[in-house]
């Protein structure tokens, strides 16, 4: 299963490092990263493969949510099918 991780918020040092560490610790493989800074705001989309993951999606969502709160960022993980179904026929 592939997930889409989105992160939005004020830019700061270590955002990608923090998220990458969480994913690596849970054996989730990053397939693609797309990141921009717009007017000081950090926007990132990461597509990751959870096939070999140690945790369920719900657990990952909880960890990212808590980490996001601590860093003042919105961090979400969603099943990729929501985007696939809406934007691809």
């Amino acid at each position: 299963m592939k997930v889409v991780v989105t992160i939005v918020g004020q830019d700061r040092v270590g955002i990608i490092a923090t998220v990458s560490r969480i994913l690596a610790e849970n054996n989730i493989n990053i397939l693609k990263i797309n990141q921009t800074i717009l007017d000081g705001f950090f926007n990132m989309v990461m597509i990751a493969d959870m096939t070999e993951s140690k945790v369920q999606l719900a657990t990952l969502q909880q960890v990212l949510g808590e980490t996001g709160n601590q860093m003042g960022l919105q961090m979400k993980a969603q099943h990729e099918d929501i985007f696939r179904s809406m934007h691809r026929i």
């Binding site: 989105t6 989309v45 979400k76 985007f83 696939r84 809406m86 934007h87």
Partner: peptide
């Protein structure tokens, strides 16, 4: 694959 704009559009 969908684009970053697609993803942010859905979430918006």
């Amino acid at each position: 694959m969908f684009t970053i704009a697609d993803i942010f559009e859905t979430n918006r």
